[in-house]
Design a protein around this nucleic acid. Structure first.
Lengths: 214, 214
DNA sequence: GCCCTTACTGAGCGAGCGCTTAGGCTCGGG
DNA sequence: CCCGAGCCTAAGCGCTCGCTCAGTAAGGGC
């Protein structure tokens, strides 16, 4: 498996940075509820109930329901960006780095689907300032992938007429995994990651590893 | 432009089948509101207000708010499926039909983005029976695309190791257009459709038209 | 023993929700 | 000229929402 794999595989819950313990339990409960029902359909009573607390306890650790979403979105985007940066900063050619980036990114969206759903689909529920902060992180995600594609084109490894459009499509493909992936479905996150890495290499016109055609 | 193009381009509002006029105005208002804010964040007062009516007027034409969503989702899925069927039933080779299907489908998701967002992202807000009905339509959409891919493989036009997985990825790519497409962005729906058709042909290992390589 | 801080609960506030009801306006048919 | 059907509104019911607040229990420093 690739270098960036352990960034995803090694952890059980990625929320260890959230303290104290009660705040983390509330946040994990909120991720589950938001992913299942969506932000607006989730009640603060539901979140507190899942964490084994009274509704009022939530407001000791978070000012509003929206602050919970903001924290989740921020941490999730940071994690996703870190995964991409690890792959993009690798040492192989552009094709290796792109395959590594796509498979890691997809594995995260599939394996941590509940978090990814909240991160990718509840952006509009944030207020203007919080949304602007998150959008800045998304531009960094886009730049990371576009960088690999540009490297591949410059090195003659890829054949991409529209770099920005293709970058958009690659990210779109990865992100949408969070919408359809089902833990009980026939595919593991690793399998989807491998499948998607191959598809993306074709999209950029790279020769698959070991292919002798020109 | 392709044969399936006029299915999208020729219409101004695809809701002419909804009568009487007041019911249609309410439905169009609901599509806009659901697309902007999401089903759960939209109030019946908002829908009625956009249609220039009092909140109670909604309940003369629709039993519940959910019935509105159901009608929108049903009509939208019917339209999307019709577009795909037109392309899939065309007369060219598998590559032509796949390119036609993808570009038409993408044009619909980009050009009628508000409808597409409601159709693709608010499915979970429906009750069990309504959701089951819509899921049956989605399976037909999947079968339509998978059929083209299988034809291409059988004819030796495509090189696809995992037909079901690749079909899933193609549809995922098209559907996610509804999430990111922006009318004020740099690309027209036609341009995105053409870009995506080319990318998908690469994903299935088809030789681009006029390419002399083996 | 005393008091302060921290973490939490039970009760409930004001607002806004989906939806209902009673009644009025506008017509075509008799 | 009246009537009933179709379509709409003003008012509001019952409920649940996000959030607040007074009070309580536990723990540590002196």
């Amino acid at each position: 498996m690739s270098r960036a794999a352990e960034t995803v595989g090694g952890e059980t819950e990625p929320w260890e940075e959230v303290t104290p313990d009660a705040a983390r339990r509330l946040l994990v409960a909120a991720v589950e509820a938001f992913a299942e029902r969506g932000y607006h359909a989730t009640t603060t009573r539901d979140i507190a109930g899942r964490a084994g607390m009274s509704p009022a306890a939530l407001y000791i650790h978070y000012k509003t329901k929206e602050e919970l979403l903001h924290r989740i979105s921020r941490i999730g985007h940071d994690r996703a960006l870190a995964i991409l940066r690890t792959a993009a900063g690798g040492e192989g050619g552009a094709a290796d780095r792109l395959a590594d980036a796509v498979s890691s990114f997809v594995r995260w969206h599939a394996g941590r689907r509940t978090t990814a759903r909240v991160v990718q689909y509840e952006l509009d529920a944030l207020g203007p300032e919080a949304r602007a902060e998150i959008l800045a992180l998304r531009r960094q995600v886009d730049a990371e992938v576009r960088g690999i594609v540009e490297d591949g084109v410059a090195a003659g490894e890829f054949d991409v007429p529209d770099v920005q459009g293709t970058t958009l499509a690659i990210l779109s493909l990865c992100i949408d995994v969070a919408r359809w992936f089902n833990i009980e479905g026939p595919r593991t996150p690793d399998e989807v990651g491998a499948l998607y890495a191959g598809l993306v290499l074709r999209m950029v016109g790279a020769r698959p590893p070991g292919d002798a055609r020109t």
